[in-house]
Structure formats: structure tokens, C-alpha cells
Design a binder for these strands. Structure first.
Length: 406
RNA sequence: GGAGGAGUGCCCGAGUGGUUAAAGGGAGCAGACUGUAAAUCUGCCGGCGUAUGCCUACAGAGGUUCGAAUCCUCUCUCCUCCA
């Protein structure tokens, strides 16, 4: 542990939404340096969603920073909670997951999470290993330490209570279970999104009850999705998946609104802290072309998830297709059977470039369809497959099919 | 157990008998421009072999009417309140 206290603190606090409580954290970090004893940094994860996107990586990034500072990451798989089915979010019960599925999910999750985390410094535990053993009386004893009033302090509970939206009793138990996880592993720090704030604080309280040093609760901001409005989520389709191809990620990052850049830098990269100030300054002074900063951002993120080399290749690919408006190298092929003439609209639909005949006609009218770069003007065009063989069919700027005649 | 409210296109959301394939917004797609797949502006945005045409569509099934997303009946789903 060579890093100075101040340096560690700066890195840890960077990009966070909230640190509760910072003074205590400083004390813990100081002790850890003095005794050469790493902090136990806890992150709970939900084994229901195996595909992680950049939004999830915000917190993983922070965890990685802790690892880089020499601390220990402990990932808690919420297998017990998942097995019961978390009722939060209205009154719909989530499907119960069987242990096998949870195991699978955890595995794919870890595979993706290790793109960011250092596996050497990561420990993984299932929370069933202690929650399962609790007897009903243990649960009673746990619940007796919290009051309903305390529970209702949580904003979403409060809103639902006031608004007469149902709250299942079991939902009160979730924060307690999560808090108990912290007790079980004696966490020194717990990370989470802003929505986890209350749960993280519960951990502190319960740890005090068990005469442990209360954990520091660090919350990270929610990442805004590629649309620049909503939070990043799979269901909204504004996400960038960790498992997506480098070229895809590069393109998606280039497509985020400029205003989002600085946030992405701060939450998704691990640069020297001074760098962020520089970038922020350049953006507000407009003395650097934003596109340069965006490209750098894209490369940084891809380098993390893949390799520097792949990031560079993704950039090249991007330039090839979008800047120089050339055709990319790997285009999906589409074969037509050799024979009589074929209607252009049909080819567009069958090749999957377009969803319906009507749409294909409209696109042709708009001048969006090209064969080997030449605009198709007539939606009634009929072509011999042999004429098309080897040619490239293009819709808009970035959708291509290589035609093969069989 | 009782009372009431709601269900519209990918999503949100107007529309309470006709000119409604259904306002508006978002998403998506395309065109122009550029610094990029940013921003901005414009166009498209149910389907049908090319159509002053036909089909499908406002939770589902029936019914009233020349005509229904709009009125009636039943069914289903969701929500709220009272007990």
C-alpha cells in the first residue's frame, strides 16, 4: 500500500454521488495504510440479469479503483433473495429462479465483470450461505432492530405509502437481508447506485448493532443512456452492452450527445484526476474539437473491455464506414437464386434490410437505397440476379448487404 | 365481500358516433448539414406488386347504428377505496 492517504481519498471520492461518511472513510483508509490491511469493499449483485451494460460498470469501475489501490473486492451474489423473488417494483412477483439458473447467471455476469475487475483481487460469495441458516427467531431478532418509521424514511417506500401503493411486508425485509450481508462479511465499504442509498445505510445500522465498525456507503450516479435522457437500461434500448463488438461500442459512444461526454469520462474511465479537469475545460471552452474527445472516450472504454489494439481497430472501422463513407469489410451476405428478374423491393425485404414492401418503396423514394453506390430511383426496378452478383446493396449510410447469385 | 377507476399504434398520451390508419411527444428510419451515428432542420413512420383500391387495428367476444376507438351487454386484466 504505497499510495498516500490523500491520493487514495481523491481517487475514491471521484465521480461518486455520495460518500457516507467521508470522515469515517478517511479514518478507515488511514488505518488500512498504517496496518497494511486492505479494506473489504462489498458490492451486491442481482443474479437475475446476466447481460451487463455500461450502466452496471459504473460501480464496477469504482470497485476496480479500490482494487488498484490495493483493497479487496467482495461480490455478493444475491442467490437467496433471487430464489425467493424480489417483489419490489409494484406488486408483481418476479419469477423465482432455481439455483441452477442463478449459478449460470452469476457465471456469465462474472465473465463480463472481469473485463473490468481484477479477478485476482475479487472474492465471490453467495448470500444464501448465511441467510439460509437463519432461523425464524433470528429473523425476528433482526427485524426487531428496525422500526416501520425508519423503513418509511426510504423515499420510494414513503411515496408509495403516501400514494396508497401497496408495499409488501417482505419488501421491508430486503434492506434487512442486504444489511445482514454486510454484517456477515464485515464489510468496510459498500458500493451501490443512488437507488441503493437506503439499503447501504441499513447495513451501517445493523453493523453497529453487531458491534462492528459501520461500513462506508458509497453511491454512484446512474448513467444516462445513449439517448441522453433516460437512465441506461436494456428495456429502453439505450444501452451499450459490455459484450457487444468493439466496432459497435465505438459507434454507439460516438452517437451519444456531446453533453454526456464528461459524465461518461468520469464514470467509465480511470484517468489521472487532473485529466478530468482538462477535459471539462476543453469542452466548456470549445478549444478542442469535441469529436476528438469523444473518440478518445470510445477508445478508452473499449480498451478496458477488450484490448487497446481492438479499440484502435474499432476506430479505423468507424472512419472507414462513416467518415470516408466507404464500405466496411465484413458485410453480411445475401444470396438470391439465379433465374428470372427480381423486384428490388423484394430483395430489400428478403435480405432483412427493410421490414416491409411499403417501407422499401418509401426509402427508395427518399433516395436511401444504393447498389454499388448508385442510387436506385425506381421502386419498380427489376433486376437479374446475375447482374447483382458481387455487388453491394446499401440502405442509408450504414446498412449493407453483399449480394450473391446462386 | 362491497364501491369506483382504467385498458388506444414500439412506448407515453389525446380523442366520447362520421372528413380517424386515429392529434401530440418520445423512440426508430431516411434526407440535408456537420465535428460523429452530437446538435439543428426536413421527410417517413400498420400491411398488401406498385392501387381516387383492399385488408388489419383502439384489451377480448357479441350487439345497436347507414356509420363505433367512441353507445349497450358480457368476459378478461390492472389499479384505488371501504370492510
Amino acid at each position: 500500500m504505497e499510495n498516500s492517504l490523500q491520493k487514495q481519498m481523491n481517487v475514491i471520492v471521484q465521480g461518486t454521488e455520495d460518500v457516507l461518511n467521508e470522515d469515517e472513510l478517511e479514518k478507515l483508509v488511514a488505518d488500512s495504510i498504517k496496518n497494511d490491511k486492505p479494506l473489504k469493499v462489498k458490492l451486491g449483485l442481482d443474479p437475475t440479469a446476466p447481460d451487463i451494460h455500461l450502466g452496471h460498470t459504473v460501480v464496477l469501475n469504482k470497485l476496480r479503483q479500490f482494487q488498484d489501490l490495493g483493497h479487496k473486492a467482495i461480490l455478493i451474489i444475491g442467490d437467496y433473495t433471487a430464489r425467493i423473488g424480489d417483489p419490489s417494483g409494484r406488486s408483481k412477483l418476479r419469477p423465482k429462479l432455481d439455483p441452477k439458473a442463478i449459478d449460470e447467471n452469476a457465471k456469465t455476469y462474472m465473465k463480463q465483470a472481469y473485463k473490468i475487475l481484477d479477478p485476482e483481487k475479487t472474492e465471490m460469495v453467495n448470500n444464501s450461505s448465511w441467510l439460509k441458516k437463519l432461523k425464524f427467531e433470528d429473523v425476528l431478532s433482526l427485524t426487531s432492530r428496525f422500526t416501520v418509521a425508519r423503513m418509511l424514511e426510504r423515499d420510494d417506500f414513503k411515496k408509495r405509502f403516501k400514494g396508497n401503493t401497496p408495499i409488501a411486508i417482505m419488501e421491508f425485509l430486503y434492506p434487512i437481508m442486504q444489511a445482514y450481508d454486510s454484517v456477515a462479511i464485515e464489510a468496510s465499504v459498500e458500493l451501490g447506485g443512488t437507488d441503493q442509498r437506503f439499503n447501504l445505510l441499513m447495513g451501517r445500522e445493523l453493523q453497529k448493532e453487531f458491534s462492528q465498525t459501520p461500513q462506508i456507503a458509497i453511491t454512484m450516479p446512474i448513467l444516462v443512456g445513449t439517448d441522453g435522457v433516460e437512465k441506461m437500461s436494456k428495456s429502453l434500448g439505450n444501452y451499450i452492452g459490455v459484450d457487444e463488438a468493439p466496432e459497435e461500442i465505438f459507434g454507439k459512444i460516438m452517437s451519444i450527445p456531446d453533453d454526456l461526454m464528461i459524465g461518461y469520462y468520469k464514470l467509465l474511465t480511470r484517468l489521472d484526476l487532473k485529466e478530468y479537469d482538462k477535459i471539462e475545460e476543453s469542452l466548456s471552452n470549445k478549444n478542442v474539437n469535441p469529436v476528438i474527445l469523444k473518440r478518445r472516450l470510445a477508445k478508452l472504454i473499449i480498451s478496458d473491455l477488450y484490448t487497446v489494439k481492438e479499440a484502435e481497430e474499432a476506430e479505423k472501422h468507424f472512419d472507414l464506414v462513416f467518415k470516408k463513407k466507404e464500405v466496411p469489410e465484413n458485410i453480411e451476405e445475401y444470396s438470391i437464386r439465379e433465374g428470372g428478374k427480381v423486384w428490388i423491393v423484394k430483395i430489400l425485404v428478403d435480405s432483412g434490410l427493410v421490414k416491409s414492401n411499403g417501407q422499401a418503396r418509401r426509402l427508395i423514394k427518399q433516395g436511401a437505397v444504393r447498389i454499388d453506390g448508385e442510387k436506385v430511383k425506381d421502386s419498380n426496378l427489376e433486376i437479374k440476379p446475375s447482374f447483382l452478383d458481387g455487388k453491394i446493396l446499401q440502405k442509408g449510410k450504414r446498412h449493407f448487404r453483399k449480394i450473391k447469385a446462386k
